[in-house]
Nucleic acid binder design. Structure first.
Length: 490
RNA sequence: GGGCCGUUAGCUCAGUUGGCAGAGCACCGCCCUUUUAAGGCGGGUGUCACUGGUUCGAGCCCAGUACGGCUCACCA
């Protein structure tokens, strides 16, 4: 056993011997530290002297400065720090004996009177001390905090205790989600929850996790997207729905990817993708206002203007512009393949036309999309759930929003023709046969729903984790997910 | 999955040419009633990630393994 732990266990014994409960059941916190600071930080020493303001609060000890018969302690309630002062002549003997057995990281409750020290720091002069919980381990180092990323992710609680930047990310994430909910509630959207376990993986191009249900004796897939269920709700006449929930994709882990991630999806009947581009601008503008108070974000040393309207550019034209390949040649699978064969390794040559376009886009375009940009009119081959474009039969009414080189949103006019949808699924199956293991499968149950008639509709998904990265400047998705997926240790 | 890098005390980090394992904070003992990176005196608390190898001798060199970071690929 670690020495620190042994010593602290001995202290628990000694506290017990004083007749003090080491793990009590409750404590009446009358004032939290932020309220105390907010209310009294501006009072002068004389004001506080005169008014003798009593407070009762609790928190975790983060530093102790002992001076024989007195001591200063900083403690922390998850939100704010405050100093407390204990003097031997101002408390019971037992309280002072308890104080001597306290360690950094222990959790205590205190009652006392507010005053200001000679250096004008608001401080509680303790009259009573309640032991609330012992920590058997010391805190990480006091001014470097916890730096080791692996420890920060594995022991997030320590990270939260000592690193304010980590607490701030949690808070901003909560504010973003809360504001998104408000945004949709105010527009009369209904929040729903659809299955996390699907009998067919659908709604996106991705490899699923597989699990098994014992009593049904069937394999189930953790969902890769909620899309096909949300559209069943549109068939059911729910005209405005949204869901904020986890998706699971059995793919690589990187600074942009976690196997489980949070997705917002929303759908509205009688609207098209143009309307949703505007709605997205409205949503992002609202978030900028609420979270940052301005229409600019700072991301990895880059200032990015978020003012609307966002740029719009066609998918094929962007590829053409950055790669130098004429648009009509991009549409010609043979010419495109020839170009790719000349540029990429043999191993990297994609098996399908859609994958070739993806490769071109990712390689030539994506990283350049720093300013918010709607990439529009994705080809049909890579958009099996989107409605055909009114302008060009090869394209769909689909857009993706890119900010800071990250794909943030993906929306489209929803394909609602069941015959066409079946063809698209079948074309996906052909892609799968050619070696695209992320191509979708035919979902007959979903097709039956479409056959009952789905009104025209727009739909969109927004990756919440990446959105939080934008608003917090986090450079790794693990920073915005409290417990990112890591290989277990030991 | 590929490439590069890292892993030394509870934490943050040094460790030279292969020659007794180090510092600061934390911790332990003593002193100290307005300190705040409190201070003073004394104390090193360690499976140098793991397993082998080379060597008189390995934290250091070599091989492998584990975990992580960065990056490329796939993906949102």
């Amino acid at each position: 056993m670690e020495d620190h732990t042994k010593i602290r266990l001995e202290k628990i014994e000694k506290i017990s011997e004083l007749g003090i409960e080491c793990y009590p059941y409750e404590f009446d916190v009358r004032d939290n530290l932020s309220d105390i600071k907010k209310s009294y930080a501006d009072f002068t020493r004389e004001d506080l002297e005169e008014r003798k303001i009593e407070v009762k609060t609790a928190g975790r000890i983060i530093s102790i400065r002992k001076m024989g018969k007195s001591a200063f302690i900083h403690f922390f309630d998850g939100e704010e720090k405050l100093q407390i002062y204990i003097r031997k002549d101002k408390v019971d003997e037992k309280v002072f004996a308890l104080f001597k057995l306290l360690d950094i990281a222990d959790i205590i409750g205190v009652s006392g009177t507010l005053f200001k020290t000679q250096s004008a720091e608001l401080t509680i002069l303790i009259s009573d001390l309640t032991f609330l919980s012992k920590s058997l381990h010391p805190l990480p180092e006091k001014w470097h905090g916890l730096q080791d990323k692996e420890l920060r992710f594995r022991q997030r609680y320590l990270d939260l205790i000592v690193n304010e930047s980590s607490r701030k990310i949690v808070k901003i994430r909560s504010e973003i989600i809360q504001n998104i909910r408000m945004f949709f509630y105010e527009k009369n959207y209904v929040e729903v929850e659809t299955p996390m376990m699907h009998s067919l993986p659908g709604g996106a191009a991705a490899k699923p996790f597989v699990t098994h249900h014992n009593s049904l004796n069937i394999d189930l897939f953790l969902r890769i997207a909620p899309e096909l269920y949300l559209k069943r709700l549109l068939v059911g006449g729910m005209s405005r729905v949204f869901e904020i929930n986890r998706n699971f994709r059995n793919e690589g882990i990187s600074i942009m990817h976690n196997p489980e991630f949070t997705m917002l999806e929303f759908y509205e009947l009688y609207k098209d993708f143009n309307y949703y581009m505007s709605l997205t601008e409205e949503l992002i503008t609202m978030l900028n206002e609420k979270i940052l108070g301005c229409n600019e974000i700072e991301f990895q040393d880059k200032k990015i203007s978020m003012s609307i309207p966002f740029k719009r550019a066609k998918y094929m034209e962007l590829i053409s512009e950055k790669s130098g390949v004429p648009v009509e040649d991009l549409w010609d699978e043979k010419k495109l393949l020839k170009f790719i064969e000349g540029k990429f390794n043999e191993d990297d040559i994609p098996p399908t036309f859609g994958k070739m376009l993806d490769l071109m886009f990712d390689h030539y375009v994506e990283k350049h999309l720093v300013e918010p940009t709607f990439v529009t009119y994705y080809p049909k081959a890579i958009s099996p759930l989107s409605k055909e474009s009114r302008l060009d039969k090869r394209e769909t009414e689909r857009f993706e929003l890119f900010i800071a080189g990250m794909e943030i949103a993906n929306g489209f006019s929803e394909l609602n023709d069941p015959v066409e949808q079946r063809k698209r699924f079948e074309s996906q199956v052909k892609d799968r046969e050619k070696g695209d293991d992320e191509a979708q499968v035919v979902d007959n149950d979903f097709l039956r729903a479409l056959e009952h008639g789905m009104a025209p509709a727009a739909g969109e998904g927004i990756g919440i984790d990446r959105l939080v990265m934008l608003y917090t400047g986090a450079e790794n998705i693990k920073e915005v997910i409290l417990f990112p997926t890591l290989r277990p240790k030991e």
